[in-house]
Design a binder for these strands. Sequence first.
DNA 1: AAACCATACGGAGGATGTCTCCGTTTTGTC
DNA 2: GACAAAACGGAGACATCCTCCGTATGGTTT
Lengths: 201, 201
Amino acid sequence: MSTTAPGKGRGPRADAQRNRDHILDTAAQYFSEHGVSGSLDAIAKKAGVGAGTLYRHFPNREALLAALLTARDEELVKRRDAIRAEPAGAASRLEQWLDALIGWAGAFDGLPEPLRTATTTETSPLGMTCQGYITTTDEFLLAAQKEGTARAEVRGRDLFLAALATSWVRDAAMADEFSAQALKSLTRNGWAASGTADSGH
Amino acid sequence: MSTTAPGKGRGPRADAQRNRDHILDTAAQYFSEHGVSGSLDAIAKKAGVGAGTLYRHFPNREALLAALLTARDEELVKRRDAIRAEPAGAASRLEQWLDALIGWAGAFDGLPEPLRTATTTETSPLGMTCQGYITTTDEFLLAAQKEGTARAEVRGRDLFLAALATSWVRDAAMADEFSAQALKSLTRNGWAASGTADSGH
DNA sequence: AAACCATACGGAGGATGTCTCCGTTTTGTC
DNA sequence: GACAAAACGGAGACATCCTCCGTATGGTTT
């Protein structure tokens, strides 16, 4: 989880780097337990730093979230590459990628909300991240469209939002795990070209 | 917007009734302008009543929201009856009902969130409301399934959540009105039985 | 119409949370 | 070891939610 960018000018001071990493670790755990709306001051206290230190490193909740997701970036990128390398058809690959997105957006309780906001707000750290994944979604989607297994009028952005929405429905819907699955199938049938749809129970 | 239930014991005091109605009106306007997360204290002030008065009538944000939606209930119920009376096929009726739900959930910015929470939380004023509309959704869905135009494995609850999700995506997505439309089509194709799907440009 | 009391009002204030400011401390360099 | 730049910490300004309780008002009774 170190972020020591080599060669770039003079690196950050040692204590700053240490604190930053530690805050990130603490925040990851705290958000896991309390959802993304957990108190930032509480995170600072738990990490053993002053509130000022936390806010200097991460000016607001979104920045902290963005940093947290960047740390997880590697994982999702790896997944993307693994899916790319699969011998399966384009439709299956797209489906797997969307599944990965749903899982990614569900990393913390309540995460879909800021992600959706970021997706439409642009020009924010989170927005950049989302934009990148929309591009990837477009890549898989285009392949499926060329293959004839995905409707032509669908856009990557729409599927990305649909994945967020699925994750959003799953949040706090623990009483009914079916619903998330249902949304997934609904989406699956939604983008599939006629005749290739799968009831996906 | 009066809520004078006739015959039920001794009604509320006149000033209480007046305040309640006025708070409701003020809240409707305030939420329209600032979304459902607007400050409750600000609403009280704007309505010219003390905070205590607001909280006595509506113990929390959800209660206020529920009262606000109850006022709109009549409208949606009327729409439901109108759809029922239509000569169109069951699929078309289901589609129109889902459209109505999407519009309903978009009455205020940010409304889908508490609605989703209420849907999965049950036993809350909002939860009751949602439950009722899920039942209606089931009614329209069942007709479409009997007609053979809707997949058998879909449930009303899922479509209800999908409608909320669509409204959720639309929120703050003004930069891209397409997305909401896309989600709608995606869902439409998702529940339609094979062969009856419509690309819904 | 005056008195009575249940009902309702208002707004100060406790609790929690976000974020800023600035005096103090730490780090890296010379 | 001394110096300046970088970073720290936590008090406190400010916003919100919500409660508590002394005070005012409305309806009823005589």
